[in-house]
Design a protein around this nucleic acid. Structure first.
Lengths: 148, 148
DNA sequence: TATTATTAGTTGCGTACACAACTAACAATA
DNA sequence: TATTGTTAGTTGTGTACGCAACTAATAATA
């Protein structure tokens, strides 16, 4: 029995993730950002005012990872953390002008990678790939959430 | 324009990779292995006698990463490195009895994750997902190789 | 209202990786 | 054959994570 067969999906996921990070690091270098930050920024573009915990939850990332990613985004001037008197634990996240100005750049970078990886897929295949990956993610989430 | 749309494939890839690692770490814990080693072992099951460089090349991993992963596999008694007099730089990799005995376990662990993530996909959908991910990986590879 | 959870965020630690600089061994060319 | 590449493997460094322990702040309950 050939073990590689069973492993192949995982292998491709791993490769796409690692190569995607290499690409993003390269593309984001000039903006003082890395592969570890852009996802948080991307979510904020569509949902300004989220807390760190909400952000981490949306991305299914550890809150420690979120804390450090956002600290970096703040340090580089992309986000601001604001505490309101309602609940002083919560730090709501807001985008700076620099971040707003950067949005179209990030969008092109992201669609650049998307175009590279799906370049020979038809529109139907792309849509189907998205559907399948979405399902697989939900299955993975569901399984690990049950574990806790 | 919604940036999340452009980013969604990458986000799912990232999630599947991270959650896959969590799963593998959990499953491999009792065998003193982690998510960083099993891929190398899996390739060796089908190709005993490869060099580190060949292994790294097959997995599209950095040779430094390969060196450390294999060092760990050796330390835990899964592989042996043998140098032959033909070319003293090359260390050919061989599986130990412990590794052979572990093969079926690793196979179940891997198919376990595969079953979890694709649990509600039909056989056709699974085959199609594999085809698409394979294509995307090749595209990613092709792009990054051109860059050098 | 005093005590006992729960929650948001921070930080230390360990692992997985890429990149780059290095060494030793081998190959190619002058 | 002396010199000048390559190549296989190692190791240092930095980043991206998850996990767990911790601190405030808030909520729930006795």
């Amino acid at each position: 029995m050939n073990i590689t067969k069973t492993e192949s999906i995982g292998r491709w996921i791993s490769l796409l993730h690692r190569y995607g990070n290499v690409y993003m690091n390269e593309q984001l270098k000039d903006y003082n950002l890395g592969a570890g930050q852009y996802q948080f920024l991307a979510v904020l573009y569509d949902n300004e005012g989220l807390s760190q915990d909400e952000l981490a939850h949306i991305l299914k990332m550890d809150k420690g990872t979120a804390a450090r990613a956002i600290a970096k985004l703040e340090k580089e001037g992309y986000v601001e953390r604001k505490t309101f008197s309602v609940d002083k634990r919560i730090k709501k996240l807001y985008l700076t002008d620099k971040a707003h100005a950067f949005k179209s750049t990030l969008t092109s970078i992201l669609s650049g990678w998307s175009n590279i990886t799906t370049k020979d897929l038809s529109a139907d295949e792309q849509a189907f790939a998205m559907k399948l990956l979405n399902k697989m993610s939900l299955n993975a989430e569901g399984y690990l959430n049950e574990m806790k």
